[in-house]
Lab assay of single mutants.
Amino acid sequence: MGFKLLSKLLVYLTASIMAIASPLAFSVDSSGEYPTVSEIPVGEVRLYQIADGVWSHIATQSFDGAVYPSNGLIVRDGDELLLIDTAWGAKNTAALLAEIEKQIGLPVTRAVSTHFHDDRVGGVDVLRAAGVATYASPSTRRLAEVEGNEIPTHSLEGLSSSGDAVRFGPVELFYPGAAHSTDNLIVYVPSASVLYGGCAIYELSRTSAGNVADADLAEWPTSIERIQQHYPEAQFVIPGHGLPGGLDLLKHTTNVVKAHTNRSVVE
C-alpha cells in the first residue's frame, strides 16, 4: 500500500471513529477524501466538511520552486461564519470567499490569524475590503508590521502568557507558548472536538522541520505538551499544512522538532 493511500485511509478511519463516538456532533463529509496538494491548482481553494458547521479550507501556493498546501478553518456561528487564517495570499483568499459563498452561503463576518507569517495573514486586506472584521493577538499584529505583512485590524486580548485561553464565538483560542513562531495560536472547536494546530503542528508525513527561522526550538516541545494537557479530548487535529489526523500529530511534531534540534547540535 502506497504512503499517500495509507495517509488518506488514516484520515478516513479517524473521521469514521469520530462519527461513531459522537453521532450528534459529527456529520463528516462523505463526498470524498481530504484534498491534497496535487489536486488543488494554485489560485483555487477546496472546502472539506469535518463536522456539522465545521470545515477546513485548503489552498496551495508556490514557494521556492515548489507547491505547498495550506489549511485553515471555518466555523459556523449562528447565521454567520468565523474564518481562521487566510488562504495564503490575496488571490487565494478572494477564491476562498467565493467558494464559501458557493458552498455554504453564509457571510464571513470575523477572521482570526493564528500567527504573523504570510500563509496566515496574506489576504487580510481582501477580507477587510469584503467587510470582514480581522483579528490577531497584539504580538501577531506587531510582528506582521515588522515583517511588512498585512496586519489584522483588531487585537485579541488575554493571550499574552503561555497557557492563556479565551473564548471567541464558537471557538476557544489558546496560546501554548512559542513553537513554530513566538505568537502562534491554537484554535479548538469544543462542539466538535476539532483542534486546529496551525503551523505549530505537523502532518504525519512530514519528517523535516522546514521553516524554523522564527521558531523557538527549545520551547516548542513544552508548548505541545500544554496543548495535549489542555485538549486531551480532541479527536480531529488539523495541521497548518497537509493531512489531518488525531492527537498523534502532536507527538510526531515533537519528535521531528527534537530530531532537528539534535542534528543542529551535532553539526
Rank of each mutant, 00 (worst) to 15 (best):
M1A: 02
F3A: 07
F3Y: 07
L5E: 06
K8W: 12
L9G: 08
V11H: 08
V11I: 05
Y12G: 10
M18E: 04
A19Y: 14
I20F: 14
I20G: 07
I20K: 14
I20M: 14
S22P: 06
P23A: 09
F26H: 04
F26Y: 05
S27N: 04
S27H: 07
D29K: 08
D29I: 13
S30W: 12
S31F: 14
Y34V: 08
P35F: 12
V37N: 07
E39N: 15
E39G: 08
I40D: 15
V42L: 06
G43C: 12
E44W: 09
E44P: 04
E44C: 11
V45K: 03
V45F: 03
V45W: 02
R46E: 07
Q49G: 08
I50W: 09
A51I: 13
V54F: 03
W55T: 03
A59V: 09
T60A: 05
Q61H: 07
Q61I: 07
D64T: 09
D64N: 09
G65N: 04
G65Y: 12
G65M: 06
A66H: 07
A66V: 05
P69W: 05
N71H: 01
N71A: 09
V75S: 03
V75I: 06
R76K: 10
R76E: 08
R76H: 07
D77Q: 09
D77E: 06
E80H: 12
L81E: 02
L81R: 02
L81C: 04
I84D: 00
I84R: 00
D85K: 00
D85Q: 00
D85F: 00
D85Y: 00
W88F: 13
W88R: 00
W88Y: 00
W88L: 00
A90K: 09
T93S: 14
T93D: 00
A95C: 15
Q103S: 15
I104T: 11
I104K: 00
I104G: 00
L106G: 14
P107G: 14
V108A: 14
A111S: 10
V112T: 04
V112L: 08
S113A: 14
F116G: 07
F116I: 03
D119C: 00
R120T: 03
G122P: 03
G123R: 02
G123V: 02
D125W: 12
A129E: 08
A133D: 10
A136C: 11
P138I: 07
S139N: 04
T140F: 03
L143V: 10
E145H: 14
E145L: 09
E145G: 11
V146R: 12
V146T: 12
V146C: 13
V146N: 06
V146A: 12
V146S: 08
E147R: 09
E147M: 13
E147P: 11
G148D: 11
P152W: 01
T153E: 11
T153S: 10
S155T: 11
L156S: 01
G158M: 12
L159M: 12
L159C: 03
S160E: 11
S161K: 14
S162G: 14
G163P: 11
A165C: 14
A165T: 10
V166M: 08
V166F: 15
R167G: 07
E172G: 04
E172H: 05
F174S: 10
Y175W: 13
A178H: 05
A178P: 12
H180P: 01
N184L: 02
N184R: 02
I186F: 07
V187S: 05
A192N: 12
A192C: 03
S193H: 15
V194M: 09
V194C: 00
V194I: 05
V194E: 00
L195K: 01
G197D: 02
G198C: 03
A200S: 08
I201N: 02
I201K: 00
I201C: 04
I201P: 02
I201D: 03
Y202A: 06
Y202F: 09
Y202L: 13
L204I: 06
S208A: 13
A209S: 13
G210K: 10
G210Y: 06
N211L: 10
N211T: 12
N211F: 15
V212I: 06
V212G: 09
V212R: 10
A213P: 14
D214E: 12
D214H: 14
D216K: 09
L217Y: 04
A218S: 08
E219K: 07
E219A: 10
W220M: 04
P221S: 11
E225M: 14
E225D: 15
I227L: 11
Q228M: 10
H230T: 09
Y231I: 05
Y231A: 05
P232H: 15
P232E: 11
P232L: 08
P232C: 11
P232T: 10
Q235R: 11
V237A: 08
I238N: 00
G242V: 03
G242R: 03
L243W: 11
G245T: 02
G246Q: 05
L247K: 14
D248C: 13
D248P: 15
L249R: 00
L250P: 02
H252I: 04
T253R: 00
T253Q: 00
N255I: 07
V256F: 05
V256P: 01
K258I: 13
A259E: 09
H260T: 12
T261R: 12
N262E: 09
R263G: 11
V266M: 06
